[in-house]
Computed example of a mutant assay.
Amino acid sequence: MRRRPLRPLAALAAAICLTALTGCGTQTAGPGDRGAGGPNPHTAGGPGGGGTVRAQKVVRLTTPHEATGMTLLEGPVFDERGDLLVVDVTAPAGGPKVLRVDIGRKTSRQVHTDDRGAYTSAQFSPYDGRLYLTDFVHGDIVSLAPDGSDPRTFFSGEVDGAPMNPDDLAFDRDGHLYLSDSRGMSEGKAIGRVVRIDREGRDATVLAGGLAAPNGISFDERYRGLWVSELTENRVSYLLLDGKGSVASRHTAIRVDGGIAQTDSIAVDADGNVYQALHGRPAIAVYDRHGERLATVDVRGRDAEGLESATNVAITPGGTRAYMTVSGPAGGFLYAFDALGKGIRQSNGG
């Protein structure tokens, strides 16, 4: 299933379709700061520039599923109670596709399952408070009540004459959705898009095209523009918005020296630092808004055995304790570290 260097979602889509056909930091007042892991040692000279931050294992949440042959955790997001929710992209029908994690007790339980979704991201809407999920395989956007009940299809169908493969999502202050549409991933063509859907799910427009398998997407700390990672080019583009729902300008902002690893999801902290998760290595590269590499958050030593990717990260809202989803043949894990800046909406889901 996992064929590097490409992220396995294209292969996953084929596997899921086949299965269907055959019947199958700072401990400051923020939620989630419950003491998982100890302090992070920092050493100078981390790969690609900056220092190295060693992440500590918190808990294993999943093991590879018999039906899909793998597990892939994604989309960590804190709810209002301080629990962390994650999605398992490859969970089979009936298996836990959304899990709620009690970090203090190091336990988890199923929040949602269904018979078809392959969910790659999760985030709560500032407009209606519901949890929104992207279904990469079927192109749907699904929403749930905060407790996982009342599933609804928010959006489905083509956008500008083409189907979507929605990967990650971000909300603006008013609750409108911005999606990375990873079309062309399996063919290696730069036909990916950034799509905007209004908060009622009625109007979907293409903001940017010609992107190389866009994956991570996040607003900057001031909501002036979007950071978008392009997996097959190992770069992060910046889309400056005009304040009227359109892109004013676009440029390559960061080139990621990842070796065999590729750019996955993105988060942004209160200081504007960009956390670029890596597929192909259990690590996150941290940059400032000017593209300087500040640090590499890494899983090291024996802990790294059987781990292939750090897909995403959530930073405790108002605090600096961060939790990243890490997966591979050894299973799906949560790892913790101290972020460089405090958590905000842009570092909580997506």
Rank of each mutant, 00 (worst) to 15 (best):
T107W: 12
Y127E: 05
V86P: 05
A122R: 05
G157R: 04
R130N: 06
T153Q: 10
Y127D: 13
D150M: 12
S108Y: 04
G104T: 08
L85Y: 03
L133N: 04
T90H: 01
R81F: 03
R173K: 15
D102Q: 10
V77G: 01
D181M: 09
R109G: 12
G161S: 07
L177S: 02
A122V: 02
Q110R: 15
L133P: 02
G117H: 02
D168I: 02
S143E: 14
V101F: 05
G161L: 08
R183T: 13
L99K: 09
G175E: 10
D147I: 10
P163N: 06
V77C: 14
G161V: 05
F171A: 06
G188A: 14
D115E: 13
S156P: 01
D181T: 07
G50D: 12
P126R: 03
A67M: 09
V87C: 13
M164R: 04
Y178N: 01
Y178H: 15
S121W: 04
P126A: 04
G175A: 09
A93M: 08
Y132T: 01
M164V: 04
F78S: 00
L179Y: 05
F136I: 14
T107E: 15
G75R: 02
D88C: 09
K189W: 11
P126K: 03
D168R: 07
R100M: 05
R183G: 13
A170M: 06
K57G: 15
D174P: 03
S149E: 12
G184A: 13
A145V: 05
L177Q: 05
Y132D: 00
